[in-house]
Amino acid sequence: HERALMVNRLQKLTRMLRVHPDPKWKQEQQELIKRLK
């Protein structure tokens, strides 16, 4: 369940980064990718 939330968050971040590349979001995205591996 928590994994699904993280995947959701990651997808949302990816969409937001396409619109507005924010370093903070980029960092969070990298963190999520690490944790999901």
Rank of each mutant, 00 (worst) to 15 (best):
K12F: 15
E2L: 10
K24S: 09
K34R: 14
R35F: 12
T14E: 13
E2C: 15
H20E: 03
E31W: 07
L36T: 01
M6E: 03
L13N: 01
D22H: 12
E28I: 09
Q11L: 13
L32K: 00
K26C: 04
L5C: 15
Q29T: 07
R15D: 14
R9M: 07
R15T: 10
N8R: 15
E31T: 09
H20P: 00
E28F: 04
L10D: 00
E2G: 07
L10F: 02
Q27N: 05
P23K: 11
Q11D: 05
R15V: 10
L36V: 01
R3N: 07
R9H: 04
H1R: 13
H1P: 12
D22G: 03
M16F: 03
V7T: 06
R9L: 07
A4H: 12
K24H: 05
E31V: 05
E31M: 10
K37T: 12
Q27V: 07
P23E: 05
Q30K: 06
H20Q: 07
Q29N: 02
T14M: 10
Q11G: 06
R35S: 02
R15E: 15
W25H: 07
R35Y: 06
K34T: 08
K37S: 11
H1W: 14
L10T: 01
K24I: 12
H20M: 09
W25Q: 05
L32P: 00
L13K: 00
W25G: 04
E28G: 01
A4M: 14
V19A: 09
L32T: 00
N8P: 00
V19I: 13
R18K: 14
P21L: 05
I33G: 02
K37E: 07
L5S: 11
R35Q: 11
L36Q: 01
L32D: 01
I33W: 08
L36D: 00
M16G: 03
M6K: 02
K24Y: 11
L36I: 07
R18T: 05
H1S: 13
L5Q: 15
A4W: 15
P21E: 09
H20V: 09
R3Y: 15
L5A: 13
L32Y: 02
A4C: 14
E28V: 04
H1A: 13
R15M: 14
L36S: 00
V19Y: 14
L5I: 10
I33L: 06
K24Q: 07
N8G: 08
K12G: 03
V19F: 13
Q30M: 13
L13W: 00
K37I: 09
E28M: 06
L10H: 00
L17D: 02
T14H: 10
D22M: 05
L13C: 05
Q30F: 07
V7L: 10
N8Y: 12
L17V: 02
I33V: 07
L13M: 01
D22K: 09
Q27T: 11
H1M: 14
K34Q: 10
Q27D: 08
W25S: 04
V19S: 11
K26L: 09
Q29P: 00
M6S: 02
Q30A: 10
K12Y: 15
Q29S: 05
L10V: 04
T14W: 09
R35L: 15
V7F: 12
R9T: 04
P21I: 06
Q29I: 10
P21A: 09
L36N: 03
P23W: 04
K12T: 11
E31N: 05
Q11C: 15
E2D: 11
D22F: 10
H1Q: 11
E2V: 11
Q29M: 15
E31S: 08
I33Q: 03
L10K: 00
L13E: 01
V19M: 11
K12L: 14
E28T: 02
P23C: 01
K24F: 05
M6P: 01
E31C: 15
H1G: 07
N8F: 09
V7D: 03
M6A: 03
L10E: 01
P23L: 05
L32N: 03
L36Y: 04
D22A: 04
I33A: 03
L17N: 05
D22E: 07
H1D: 13
A4I: 13
K12V: 13
P21W: 15
Q27E: 12
E31F: 07
L5D: 07
R3Q: 07
K24L: 08
Q29R: 14
Q30Y: 11
V7Y: 14
L13F: 00
L32I: 09
L17F: 02
V19D: 06
Q30D: 07
Q30L: 13
T14N: 12
L5T: 11
R35N: 08
V7I: 14
K37Y: 14
R9S: 01
K24P: 01
R18F: 04
K12H: 13
E28N: 02
L32S: 03
H1E: 11
H1N: 13
N8D: 12
P23S: 06
V7R: 12
H20R: 11
W25P: 00
Q11M: 13
Q30H: 05
M6I: 09
L17G: 01
W25K: 05
L32M: 02
I33H: 02
M16V: 02
R35V: 09
